[in-house]
Amino acid sequence: MQPILNTAPNLDAPDDFYEALIEAHQGLSTEESHAFNARLVLVLANHIGALPVLRQAFAAAA
């Protein structure tokens, strides 16, 4: 069975997550913010680990 991307709401506290994400960008230049996002994507992709799920995420984000 191929893994499936979970697109259902799955955050315990979505507002808290958003606040933490915004805080993580505080004080960063636009370039630094983009680099942070790129590193974050790579960390989360590594956590997911399954290319089929990542491809589903690419399609969902497009």
Rank of each mutant, 00 (worst) to 15 (best):
E19Q: 11
A45E: 06
R39G: 03
I48S: 00
T30A: 14
F36T: 01
I48W: 00
A61P: 01
A8H: 10
Y18K: 07
E31Q: 14
A61C: 11
T30N: 08
A35G: 03
E32L: 03
E19G: 04
N10L: 11
E23P: 00
Y18G: 00
E19T: 12
A59T: 04
L40Q: 12
M1R: 12
N46F: 05
P14W: 04
Y18F: 05
G49P: 02
P52G: 05
F17W: 11
R39L: 08
A62L: 11
H25K: 11
A8R: 13
D15M: 11
H47M: 09
N37R: 04
D16Y: 00
L54E: 03
A50D: 13
L51Y: 08
V53M: 02
N6R: 06
A62Q: 09
N37F: 04
A57N: 06
L54S: 05
E19D: 14
A45I: 01
H34E: 15
G49A: 09
H25Y: 06
L40D: 08
E23S: 13
A59S: 12
Q2S: 15
D15T: 09
P14S: 06
D15V: 05
I22S: 06
S29K: 02
L21V: 06
P14R: 04
A45Y: 05
Q2R: 14
F58R: 03
A60I: 04
P14N: 09
P52M: 09
Q26V: 10
L5V: 04
A60D: 09
P52V: 03
T30E: 15
N10W: 07
V41M: 14
L44F: 08
Q26Y: 12
D15S: 12
Y18W: 08
R55K: 15
Y18M: 05
Q2H: 11
A59P: 01
A35C: 05
Q26M: 12
E23Q: 14
D16T: 10
H34G: 06
L5S: 04
P14V: 07
L11Y: 15
T30D: 15
A35M: 07
P3I: 03
G27H: 01
N37M: 06
L44V: 13
G49R: 06
I22P: 00
E23C: 03
G49M: 08
F17D: 07
A59N: 07
E19W: 04
T30L: 10
E31D: 15
T7P: 01
F36P: 00
I22W: 04
L11N: 10
L40C: 07
Q56S: 05
A38C: 04
Y18D: 05
S29D: 09
L42D: 15
E32F: 04
A57M: 14
A13Q: 14
L44R: 10
V43A: 15
A8S: 15
R55I: 07
P9T: 13
L28P: 00
R39W: 03
Y18T: 01
L51V: 10
L51P: 02
N10K: 14
A20Y: 02
G27K: 01
L40Y: 10
A20M: 07
D12A: 15
H47E: 15
A61G: 12
D16Q: 08
A24W: 03
A61T: 06
E19C: 02
F58K: 02
L28T: 12
P52T: 08
Y18L: 12
R55Q: 15
I22R: 09
N6M: 08
A24Y: 03
E31R: 07
A38K: 09
A50M: 11
D12C: 02
V41W: 12
Q2A: 14
A60W: 09
L54N: 04
L54A: 07
V53Q: 01
L5R: 02
